[in-house]
Simulated scan of single mutants.
Amino acid sequence: MPDVIFAGPEGRLEGRYQHGRTPKAPIALMLHPHPQHGGTMNNKVVYNLYQTFARQGFSVLRFNFRGVGRSQGEFDRGEGELSDAASALDWLQMYNEGAASCWIAGFSFGAWIGMQLLMRRPEISGFISVAPPANMYDFSFLAPCPSSGLVLQGDKDDIVPEPSVAKLVNKLSQQRDITVDYRVVQGANHFFTDRMEEMTGHVEDYLRQHAEGAQEAQAAAR
């Protein structure tokens, strides 16, 4: 799990990277919660997402947004952080030319940034959005949402109420050609305290289903 430093729009960005074990392994980028509320790449949800993707054979990168840890710059209300995420994806792609697929995963504020990046980078083929802050930020830019993905939410979340996320998912689910898998973790708060294993279990299950579906599609095309 080597430390990495790469160039961002406002200076260096600090990350942790794990390379996949197979040629052309899929890639995945992890995005952390709000920098002004203690969010870092070492957040437990982000760390567990990172480990889950790595176990499923992905080359995975998590990193600190500008102004967090050893990353240079200052908080920029989401605009700069979106640019940071784009730079991180550029770095990940540079080291993984020919990757089988590209995924984005984010938690809370990171989920909001991740969905914006999804709209700007057509190579992103799947997403995991954990506790997207639909009550705090405007997600209307997802018109239409360009790819299918998984949304995870705790029913005891007192920061992002579950009904606000359900409303967002319902809106996205009305769009054609994509499927949003919405899973509510019973008893989970915003940080999935004592429910982390259930959260990662859902992510593993979704990634496994997606991989099996892709294999079946390839076999049918032969």
Rank of each mutant, 00 (worst) to 15 (best):
169 V>P: 01
44 K>T: 10
48 N>D: 09
167 K>S: 15
124 I>F: 04
55 R>L: 09
98 G>T: 11
27 I>W: 01
114 G>C: 06
189 N>C: 11
180 V>K: 12
59 S>I: 03
173 S>C: 11
147 S>T: 14
218 Q>R: 14
87 S>F: 12
166 A>V: 10
115 M>I: 07
221 A>M: 11
130 V>W: 03
59 S>A: 07
172 L>E: 06
39 G>D: 03
37 H>K: 07
78 G>V: 08
71 S>F: 08
178 I>V: 14
185 V>T: 10
170 N>R: 15
148 S>D: 09
126 G>S: 01
217 A>T: 11
185 V>E: 05
173 S>H: 09
174 Q>W: 09
164 S>N: 14
87 S>Q: 13
198 E>V: 08
163 P>A: 14
70 R>G: 15
42 N>C: 05
135 N>K: 07
10 E>D: 13
68 V>F: 06
218 Q>D: 14
165 V>L: 12
39 G>T: 04
202 H>K: 07
200 T>L: 10
141 F>P: 04
9 P>W: 04
152 L>H: 09
159 I>W: 11
90 D>I: 08
76 D>C: 12
201 G>D: 10
4 V>D: 03
52 T>C: 11
133 P>V: 08
113 I>V: 15
98 G>W: 00
97 E>P: 11
93 Q>R: 15
8 G>T: 10
92 L>C: 02
91 W>G: 02
101 S>V: 01
194 D>K: 13
43 N>E: 11
212 E>N: 13
133 P>N: 05
86 A>S: 15
118 L>P: 00
125 S>A: 13
179 T>Q: 15
88 A>S: 08
108 S>F: 11
221 A>K: 14
126 G>A: 11
179 T>C: 14
45 V>E: 02
199 M>W: 09
143 A>N: 14
189 N>K: 15
1 M>D: 13
123 E>W: 01
73 G>L: 12
181 D>L: 12
118 L>M: 10
115 M>S: 06
183 R>W: 08
196 M>T: 02
7 A>C: 13
9 P>F: 06
181 D>P: 00
73 G>T: 06
53 F>V: 06
154 G>A: 09
69 G>L: 05
58 F>Q: 00
34 H>Y: 09
133 P>Q: 08
26 P>F: 01
204 E>K: 13
74 E>W: 14
63 F>T: 03
109 F>K: 04
162 E>I: 04
203 V>H: 01
192 F>H: 01
